[in-house]
Design a protein around this nucleic acid. Structure first.
Length: 297
DNA sequence: TATTCGTGGCC
DNA sequence: TGGCCAAGAAT
C-alpha cells in the first residue's frame, strides 16, 4: 500500500482546491442544467471533445428541455439534431432513454444508480456520473481522465490499462471520500484535472496540485512499457461509409432514393453492407421503392 | 475480452 | 503528414 492510499485526504484536498480555482464554466455544471442536462451532456461527451459538444448541447436543451419532450419526437429527429458529433447510435440511445424515463420514471431522470444503469446507453461510467454530478451521490466515477490521474499520481505509471480493470475499480472506491458531498466534488475535480492538466500527451506537471506527491513523476516519469493501444483506423472503413450515408440522410427532409445514397461511396459491396448495418441499428428506415429516411418510429 | 461504432483537431 | 486522442457502451 502506498502513502497516498493510506491517506487519501492528501489527494482530495489539493485537487478540490485546484478545482475551486480552475474549473471550467460548462453549461451542464450550472444549477439550471438539472439532471436531464447532465445526462444529455454525458451522452454527448462519450468519446467526443467538449468544444464540439457545446453548441449541440445548447440547441438540444432548448428544443427538448425535459425527457418527455424528446420522448414525444421521432427517433430520427434525435439523429438529425445529433449532427456531426459522431457515434450516432448514442442519439438513438438517448432518445430511447428518454422514452424509458417517460414510461418508467414519470418523466424524471432516476436518482438510483441501478435504475440509471438500466437505461439504454447508460453504462457504468455514465450511471455514476449522473448520480454524482446531478444528485451529489457518492460513487466512483471512473472515466478515462480519472483513470489516467490515478495511474500516474497513485500507481506510478504513465497510462492506465486499455480496459478498466478490477484493480482500478478497487483503487477508485478505496480513494473515495467518506462524505457524500466531498465525494461528488472529488469526482468532478479529479476528472477536470485529467482533462486540463494531467493530459494524455504533454501533461503540465508545473500546474498540477499533485506534482509533489505524484508517484509517476517521483519515479522519473518512466515511459509506458505495455502494449500500445490499438490505433483506430478510419479511412476506408465501414464506419466512414456509414458516416457518409447518414450525412446525406440528415440533410434530406424527404425520403432519399437509392441512387442518391449511391453517391456516398464508390464501392457497391461495402456501400450496401454499411447501409444494411445502419438499418439493422435502427438509424435508417427503408421504405417502398428503394427509398430511405431517418426513423419515424 | 476484443471489436465495433464517427468525427475532427492537434502536434 | 498522419497517428493519436476525445466525460464509453454494447456485444
Amino acid at each position: 500500500m502506498t502513502a497516498t492510499e493510506q491517506n487519501p485526504a492528501a489527494l482530495h484536498a489539493p485537487v478540490i482546491s485546484w478545482f475551486d480555482a480552475h474549473a471550467r464554466d460548462l453549461p451542464w455544471r450550472r444549477p439550471e442544467a438539472g439532471a436531464w442536462g447532465v445526462m444529455v451532456s454525458e451522452f454527448m461527451l462519450q468519446q467526443t471533445p467538449v468544444s464540439r459538444v457545446l453548441p449541440v448541447y445548447e440547441q438540444w436543451l432548448a428544443r427538448w428541455p425535459r425527457p418527455a419532450d424528446l420522448a414525444a419526437e421521432a427517433p430520427g429527429e434525435a439523429v438529425r439534431a445529433w449532427g456531426r458529433l459522431g457515434y450516432p447510435r448514442r442519439a438513438l440511445r438517448l432518445h430511447a432513454a428518454a422514452r424509458a424515463m417517460a414510461e418508467r420514471h414519470d418523466g424524471e431522470v432516476p436518482r438510483d444508480h441501478a435504475q440509471l444503469l438500466a437505461l439504454p446507453g447508460v453504462g457504468e461510467y455514465t450511471a455514476a456520473a449522473v448520480a454524482s454530478f446531478a444528485y451529489g451521490q457518492r460513487h466512483a466515477v471512473l472515466d478515462t481522465n480519472v483513470r489516467r490521474v490515478l495511474a500516474r499520481a497513485v500507481t506510478g505509471v504513465q497510462y492506465p490499462p486499455n480496459a478498466t480493470t478490477a484493480a482500478e475499480r478497487r483503487l477508485a472506491r478505496a480513494l473515495l471520500p467518506d462524505d457524500e458531498a466531498t465525494a461528488a466534488r472529488w469526482a468532478a475535480a479529479s476528472m477536470e484535472l485529467g482533462a486540463l492538466v494531467c493530459t494524455a500527451k504533454n501533461e503540465t506537471c508545473v500546474a498540477c496540485p499533485l506534482a509533489a506527491s505524484c508517484a509517476w513523476r517521483l519515479a522519473g516519469k518512466p515511459a509506458h512499457d505495455g502494449p500500445a493501444r490499438r490505433g483506430q483506423t478510419y479511412a476506408g472503413t465501414d464506419r466512414q461509409v456509414r458516416g457518409r450515408l447518414l450525412a446525406l440522410l440528415r440533410e434530406a427532409t424527404d425520403p432519399v432514393p437509392q441512387h442518391h445514397l449511391d453517391t456516398a461511396w464508390h464501392e457497391p459491396v461495402q456501400r450496401a453492407r454499411a447501409l444494411d448495418g445502419l438499418v439493422a441499428d435502427g438509424l435508417v428506415e427503408p421504405l417502398e421503392g428503394g427509398r430511405y429516411r431517418l426513423p419515424l418510429g
